[in-house]
Nucleic acid binder design. Structure first.
Lengths: 335, 335
DNA sequence: CTGAAAGCGCTAACAG
DNA sequence: CTGTTAGCGCTTTCAG
């Protein structure tokens, strides 16, 4: 890489003159500025990012920790984060915790040495199950800002971006009730997560409020991917009168639809299905799945904004929590 | 952040003594080492990464440029790259080109200022269509190593990781022929890409070699996601006697299967389908899709290895191309 | 208008 | 065994 020093030598001026010239300093003669810039351009000079970071104690880099990049929700969130960060002149260093607490701790430790100005993350499943977030609080104690999105924790005082999980599930359930559904089952593989619990509660509350709904809430947990087929087939065996299904994760709604079609349920006449999925699954089914849209891009964008707000304004104290609106998008799997 | 200077002041020793002590230098008395380390631990000292990068002219960071993170193949490749890089003590800065050439150029320019030691990337669609890779060659001219994976270009002399696209499609086609299929259609949305062209060629070659195969090759291009439904339905309309489908992208195989089932094709009796998809789509269909497995994790891992090899051994000249074996995994959609 | 010097945090050659 | 110094590349104050 070409440096200021090399430019200075070739031009027989000092390093500081070169530096100032490249910044259009008033102190430098127009003539010199032209000469310096010409050579800089000719040699494709680029200011060394590392040196600037050291000088400014600021890297313009955000650490992003994603629990599961193969989950479409997180991939899309990353897309939005990268886009907004890039727009604001920030790079992102991506770490994938793969739902492991140790990897999460490791990533935080490895990057909290001046590598990044702050973190945007969603908490790993293992961490949420263990309910131990000391490692994240440790980062905050070092005065490195953190923004949590989607999977958050009440035990961490920082900026957060969430959706109204309770309300979204509540609304979806209410919709099925309004269709006259009498036997609504909730399925999902994220009941251990903060968001999963809230969604289950929203579902339960909607049923509870409905005086003429006589069945008990049914919550079916999918534990491992390889058992998803059987688990969902069991739903239809155990609850042959099921007439509404709410999936609170990304994929089980689609699988439920496939299985129901295989069993010759008439959808949506006999059975309605609502997924908590992203648009990507639409192409995989016919009829198309009614979903709760999470506005994932907005979640990512808002996360970056909150973080940069804090970076640019260290004195602000109160943590903000931004709630992104969800939307129930009716398609072919509901009446 | 706590610095060597602060430790030195508190201990009344020089900065270099502290630095050496922390590195277990023989020059330093055991007693001092203990004292220094104790304080460092107590204050949670971490060497400033930026300073070390500046000192060493090495960031231990890899720039990764991904064309489309919502594509499962690339998400998985990123997963593998991050995992291997992390294992080797490297961070990754992720940029998403979103298939745009300008974004690709931008990312390369912004990171080729000492931010990263090298790049791992797959070429954006727009770049491949325009067939202009000057910006990538410019990086190589700056002596920054680049590893290309999946989507490569003959006009770039660098290390590459690919699969045998021609061979994989050839093998899949041969398999369908061995089942006695007489009317095999290829579908996909990546015919503009290097990999897509090779796959089409492999398909065509297999047909051509088969003397008793009388139908012409049929290549159906899917242009936009929103037209995928109609495009595939058209296949069945135009070619009612189709008895074999090869999808060369991630999703169209699944869609073809759905549509065929809707049209009451008996699969795999009347019609076989082979997808170029990852395992993630398996849960979405019944029967499960026969696929060409790309060993995506190996692709990512190999890319990191090639890059680090080059970083650690600058003198090597010849570019290597590593070909990862594919595997035809027979499942329910073939006989 | 230009240059010298200090300093960001660290390492390492050299001096004591 | 410990300290001084220079330097990685840059910005910026201060001197000239």
């Amino acid at each position: 890489m070409i440096t200021l020093k090399q430019l200075a030598e070739q031009l027989n001026v000092s390093i500081s003159t070169v530096s100032k010239a490249l910044h259009n300093s008033e102190e430098i003669s127009p003539d010199t500025i032209v000469r310096v810039k010409a050579l800089a351009k000719h040699l494709n000079y680029k200011p060394n990012k590392v040196a600037i970071s050291l000088k400014n104690s600021k890297t313009n880099t955000i650490g992003v920790i994603i629990p599961d990049i193969l989950n479409h929700f997180f991939a899309k969130a990353l897309l939005a984060i990268e886009k907004e960060a890039s727009k604001q002149g920030y790079n992102i260093i991506t770490c994938l915790s793969n739902e492991k607490k140790t990897k999460e701790i490791n990533s935080l430790n490895l990057l909290s040495n001046g590598s990044v100005d702050g973190f945007i993350m969603s908490i790993a499943e293992e961490t949420q199950v263990a309910n131990n977030v000391d490692h994240i609080n440790a980062i905050l104690l070092q005065n490195i800002p953190v923004v949590l999105f989607d999977r958050v924790s009440d035990n961490i005082a920082c900026d957060k971006v969430i959706i109204d999980d309770f309300g979204a599930a509540y609304e979806a359930t209410k919709h099925l009730l309004s269709e006259g559904r009498k036997h609504i089952v909730l399925i999902g593989d994220i009941q251990d997560l903060s968001v999963g619990k809230l969604r289950v509660n929203g579902y339960a509350e909607a049923l509870k409020e409905t005086s003429n709904y006589i069945n008990e809430p049914v919550v079916v947990s999918i534990n491992k991917d390889n058992l998803i087929d059987e688990t969902i087939q069991d739903v239809f065996k155990k609850h042959p009168s099921v007439d509404g299904i709410i999936s609170i994760d990304n994929t089980s709604g689609v699988v439920a639809l496939q299985k129901a079609q295989k069993l010759n349920y008439n959808i949506p006449k006999d059975l309605s299905i609502i997924g908590f999925s992203d648009e990507n699954v639409l192409q995989f089914t016919d009829p198309k799945l009614t979903t709760i849209s999470q506005h994932t891009l907005d979640i990512g964008k808002a996360s970056v904004k909150l973080l940069l707000d804090r970076l640019n304004n260290k004195k602000q104290i109160a943590s903000k929590t931004k709630t992104i609106k969800t939307k129930l998008v009716l398609r072919g799997t509901t009446k």
